[in-house]
Design a protein around this nucleic acid. Sequence first.
DNA 1: TATAATAAGCAACAAAGGTTGCGCAACGAT
DNA 2: ATCGTTGCGCAACCTTTGTTGCTTATTATA
Lengths: 187, 187
Amino acid sequence: MPPKFKFTRDEITSAALDLTRRAGPDGLTARALAEELGCSVKPIFGLFKNMEEVQDAVLSAAQDLYQSYLAEDMAAGKYPTYKASGMGYIRFAREEKELFKLLFMCDRKGEPPKPGKEMDVIIPLIMKNTGLTREKAELFHLEMWIFVHGVASMIATSYLDWEMETVSEVLTDAYMGLRTRFRAAEE
Amino acid sequence: MPPKFKFTRDEITSAALDLTRRAGPDGLTARALAEELGCSVKPIFGLFKNMEEVQDAVLSAAQDLYQSYLAEDMAAGKYPTYKASGMGYIRFAREEKELFKLLFMCDRKGEPPKPGKEMDVIIPLIMKNTGLTREKAELFHLEMWIFVHGVASMIATSYLDWEMETVSEVLTDAYMGLRTRFRAAEE
DNA sequence: TATAATAAGCAACAAAGGTTGCGCAACGAT
DNA sequence: ATCGTTGCGCAACCTTTGTTGCTTATTATA
């Protein structure tokens, strides 16, 4: 009996994501989103309790998109698995600056940004690649991740403007350098 | 003949800086600043053209404060000069999270965050420390700076919560690792 | 001490953004 | 084809924030 909804939750979320992409989180206002959709603000508040819920949906969609970046680089086989996770992270930062900032450059308490794969997959991989003990491998990973995050965040804020080829070379420097350093520390 | 000003430009700037420290850039509103000073908004607009000018003053004051962090760590002699610049950057990020974000985690075009010392002081220093050519030393510095910025930004956003002692150890890992890597590349 | 010049306080105005009430229109069941 | 339900557009309301006009208070000087 009631009229159909003009939009689905997903359509609205998608438009909100696009808006965030282009104008950042501050650009995501009820009125701007309505204009993006070509409607009034009512359909939005019909499907979402409030704008905060829309922002949450955007966050979630951005995370999904990030996972797709990771998955793509992991599947491409262009780089070793471990490196691919870093390259995916950085490629996401490069191509989706606003979303990267939203996901990985906001205040969080105690959860360092990580690639999709959980620690219990990553750490054994590093142990295998480098021959380090678990404890050493964890520190190695953290230090590598600091470097990767450094590159990504500097690209996302336009401090750097690098091709992925350059990124790859620099990541190799960091990886090889740290690996040698950690091996030397084992005596 | 006219009444005295109730505040100086510096007093207002200082209050604005404190406000930004505590509440971030969004916390710096005309009314909040007035309350901080214990007056109406008028004195602010008497000494500043508008809030944008206040924000500029805060930015400038934050930069001065950052320079003092750098200078202190450089002068302390606890670390070698080059390392001290990185430690100062990170210490600033640790103790002044909001100001660090304001200065070094905003969109800028093409100017990577740097310590106070100019390139023409830093690069020769690295060449001396490492024996690298100028070109290599510049890349070395950039990669080190990426790492330093990674640590600093992760601390500023509370992804990490490290003592400076830990920071020091991790910086050494990165430095020694990269130095070895760059030397090896020279054959 | 009176005065000119103007800083400060108060309150108002405008703009932006979130949210909602009102009335109309759409749509499936009858 | 009609009806009941309810989504939608419009416009309004409220809050926050930047900014400014009006009036009063202040202060160096005549």
